[in-house]
Design a protein around this nucleic acid. Sequence first.
RNA 1: GCCGGAGUAGCUCAGGGGUAGAGCAGCUCACUCGUAAUGAGCAGGCCAGGGGUUCGAAUCCCCUCUCCGGCUCCA
Length: 644
Amino acid sequence: MSIELVLPDGTVTCHKEGVTGLAIAGSIGPRLADAAIAVSVDEELMDLNRPIYSGGQFAVITQGSESGRDILRHSAAHVMAQAVLNLFEGATFAIGPAITDGFYYDFDLDRPFTPEDLEEIEREMDRIIAEDQPFEREEMSREVGLELFRDHPYKLEIIRSVDDTEVDSGDIISVYRNHEFVDLCRGPHLPSTGRLKAYKLTRTAGAYWRGDEKRPQLQRIYGTAWESRKALRTHLHRIEEAARRDHRKLGRELDLFSFPEDLGPGLVVWHPKGGMLRRLVEDYSRRVHQDFGFDFVFSPHLAKAGLWQTSGHLDFYAENMYPALDMDQDEEYRVKPMNCPFHVLIYRSDARSYRDLPIRLSELGSVYRYERSGVVHGLLRARGFTQDDSHTFCTRQQLPNELQLHLDFVLQLLRDFGFKDFRSELATRPEEKWVGEPELWELAEQSLAEALETAGIPLRIAAGEGAFYGPKIDVHVEDAIGRGWQMSTIQVDFSLPERFGLEYVTSEDTRERPVMIHAAKFGSVERFLGVLIEHYAGAMPIWLSPVQATIVPVADRHVEYALEIADQLRGEGLRVETTVGPGKLGEKIRRAITQKVPAILVVGDQDVENGTVGLRLRSQKGERRGVPREEAVSDLLSAAQPPH
RNA sequence: GCCGGAGUAGCUCAGGGGUAGAGCAGCUCACUCGUAAUGAGCAGGCCAGGGGUUCGAAUCCCCUCUCCGGCUCCA
């Protein structure tokens, strides 16, 4: 019997049944065979040496590809587990997948791993790799598997939970064996351990079995593995680069903000430079909200517990809320974790007609959420933060247009701050618990999907992952070093209008419920600034720089001229500082550069005489001498224009 | 909250049972200088907080707090 395999370029090839992926790769080209890690037939990944019995779409998975790396990392995880079981008496192993940029494996043993343990494990891994042990796939019945792993309770649990449909023939599980080591595994794997060229164990951590804190805590070891030493080095450099950009470090170095211990975890104070940066971002937000037809409202930080009862937050959000405050007798108050109930009350403060809709209420609203002590992380995860929040109330007919408008808004905003690559996630109606009408859900989901398609934003549909009260989209950006961040969120809500009994009068003089759209464009102002600082590595675009230009006089006799130029720039609305006082020229310039000031103007004898400046811009290499003063001013002014 | 690591001057870090050190930053003085650190001097610490062991604790032990890396959750 022969089988037909279709190559990615459309070529149809014929092979004997039972041919291996490696043989096919070899028949295409020897270099391909060298780079091959696995193959796929109709999307099903298979080991290189596994016989193929059915035809279909055929592809070779090579080592530099993402799925090739996944396989490599998964094999690295196996080798690490093998090393750990060899070295640690009584250790048992749980689960060890490939993850973004690396892999981990969870173990249960009577003590945590130490940094020295990692070195020893690496040595044992090196030995296993040097032996070039082949990975051999073996299939067996569930019963045989249960017997094989009788000493490893986590494996038993996995075997019992394996879905019948996962392996074609129902009751069959697969394991991979290399020398003395055997692990339950779907595969595929590298042909042999010797193919692991570059890996590194990076850190240890505690992790709950199946991510459930009620279950045993295991000891996790993280590692990373790459197809070459060079790729590994590049990755380690990227990690260093990320550390260099850490907004907490830059926040201190650039004197933007701090987290004083006396305040408490997750609470930030903004220093003058950071305050300026934040104000610029917020001013931008207000401007664009106005452009898009939003109205501005304000609300307090507290409300009676009853409001949170009506809104439902005390039912499904209580664990993130701060405990009740006793203010007046018998009356409890709660600090707000969200702004929506306040905006709902504003809507409800008057009888609304269809002529009033849509009503778009916006607020830079500070909220407080109780985050567990282990999760706070600088500006990215704080306990007190400010949302550029809005709540739009519209008719169901207006919903598609409104969603389009919100998405346009979000994309303009993210683009204006220098983000170029977006993707988005659409969370649709959950299977079980949900409110509203199915047609409305569908309309909302469709409008969101269409809006994203029109905008050309890659979309992942998270089927059934929506909240019970409505579908939502999250917009993620990719930063300058390729990390993804979730920023904006647009959320449709069929529940709150119901809970608060919101209505409007239609043109037929009947009553209808409005639909509500929650939208946070930055997500949180703090978090957005944190991401922005990391994206730009602290070197903000000139329109956002707290100090846009530093004027440096060469000697004391040039101070007067320097101040004159500073005044002129300030008069044009630029943010300028002048370095008078002691210190050499080089030192002052160095300071301005390390403080990431985008423009440095040096003035000396020749400049005073000719009415010029020396201009050093962050965006250009080196400096320009003798630039006419007016030219420098107008250059700076045009460079400092905000995008909107 | 849980697991690991760590808290020494404003910052970055050394020291590790015998009464605290460096570099940078700060202050003073001198130098007045043309594009990434001039030199000298001065000042600065309840060694996170509390308890214990000891003749003696920054150092060893216990508890608490905070930070870092994860788990979980999310903006």
